[in-house]
């Protein structure tokens, strides 16, 4: 699906706000490259700089450092009219939907085309098609105030598609919605990505959103992109403290059973833990103690972390360790400082 060509590229992007209380560094040296067709997630705690980052992509916020490229062209070097032209290929949806409240859904969807000078009759026809795509053909003449949150976001998505964009930026697009509606909106975005080949950038503070649809993810912490990569790589083996906090928000649950030797097993998307423990018992005749586990199901594969306590018998412990290390789908390493 994804080709090698980056559609969005941030090179050394920094943003410093100058406020009455001094300077706030919202972004610091961000290098991100998003390829065509990707669903790229950006996750971080509140205040990490996610919104600022996504707003730097279409230059709603002008970076104080670095360059932003879209489809090979430098946005940060464009004149205002050129930039407005480029923005038509980068659509955006928002947490608060931001629909025109005094206009019908149809008029809302027509709006980007109106700006671009599309003939009204043509715009109307296209808008009806788009409302169909998002599943709201019967709401054409309703006003946004008459719709539910999920329906509003669907209209906003239809509006975002009206300018035939290459990129769809979503800033906490599902954060005002309940879990079921969130899932259906995410499914719609995924569908649009697949069918229309539109690259999506998903900003969220919710792990579940990333798990649900993203191919790539960047973890943002205090204005820095601390980890960037494939979702499975980052989630199966979070290297930084910020990433670990996001992946395991409650920390690793720890049992109070004492074991001399402790092993950390990281699941990389192969087997999940139940069959593993079972086969340990069956294949080696060793019973281990699960001290804590936090595994997640990402796209049907298991990811996560588990701590197990090895038996106190040195032979059995070694046997179990060797067995675990021989497994391809997982990485196992002994934790030496567990009991300290």
């Amino acid at each position: 699906m994804s080709s090698q060509k980056p559609i969005v590229e941030l090179a050394g992007v920094g943003k410093t706000f100058r406020g009455p209380e001094g300077e706030i560094v919202a972004l610091d040296g961000i290098d991100i490259s998003i390829k065509k067709g990707d669903i790229f997630g950006v996750i971080g705690m509140s205040g990490a700089g996610k919104s600022t980052l996504v707003r730097c992509i279409n230059l709603l916020e002008r970076p104080t450092q670095g360059k932003v490229f879209f489809d090979g062209q430098e946005l940060t070097a464009m004149t205002a009219p050129k930039l407005r032209q480029a923005r038509r290929s980068i659509s955006m949806i928002f947490q608060q939907f931001n629909l025109l409240m005094q206009k019908t859904c149809l008029k809302n969807v027509c709006f980007p085309m109106e700006i671009a000078g599309v003939k009204p009759s043509e715009a109307k026809k296209r808008a009806m098609e788009l409302l169909n795509i998002v599943g709201l053909p019967d709401k054409a003449n309703a006003y946004p105030a008459q719709l539910s949150g999920g329906q509003k976001q669907r209209v906003a998505i239809a509006r975002a598609l009206a300018s035939d964009p290459q990129v769809l930026l979503c800033d906490e697009a599902t954060s005002a919605l309940d879990p079921t509606t969130t899932r259906s909106i995410l499914a719609l975005i995924k569908d649009i990505n697949r069918r229309l080949g539109i690259t999506a950038v998903i900003i969220t503070h919710e792990m579940a959103v990333i798990e649900e649809i993203c191919t790539h993810v960047a973890i943002l912490d205090e204005g820095k992109a601390v980890e960037i990569g494939m979702v499975e790589e980052i989630f199966s083996n979070p290297k930084t403290e910020a990433a670990r906090k996001l992946v395991f928000p409650d920390g690793l649950p720890v049992s109070h059973l004492k074991s001399e030797r402790v092993v950390r097993i990281v699941f990389n998307g192969g087997t999940s833990y139940e069959p593993l423990i079972a086969s340990l018992a069956i294949d080696c005749g060793v019973k281990v103690n699960i001290l804590g586990a936090d595994t997640k199901n990402v796209g049907g594969k298991a990811f996560g972390n588990m701590l197990i306590g090895l038996p106190n018998d040195p032979n059995e412990a070694q046997k179990a360790l060797n067995y675990l290390k021989s497994k391809k789908d997982i990485t196992a390493e002994e934790v030496t400082d567990y009991n300290e």
Binding site: N58, L60, P81, L83, R84, Q85, A86, R87, R88, I90, S91, M92, F94, Q96, N98, L99, L100, M101, F111, P112, I115, A116, S163, L169
Partner: peptide, 18 residues
């Protein structure tokens, strides 16, 4: 007027006049 709506229009490439 909601700032967000203005921002949405800006993100669509609307000129200040529009």
């Amino acid at each position: 007027t909601d700032k967000g709506v203005i921002e949405a229009a800006q993100s669509m490439g609307a000129s200040p006049f529009l």
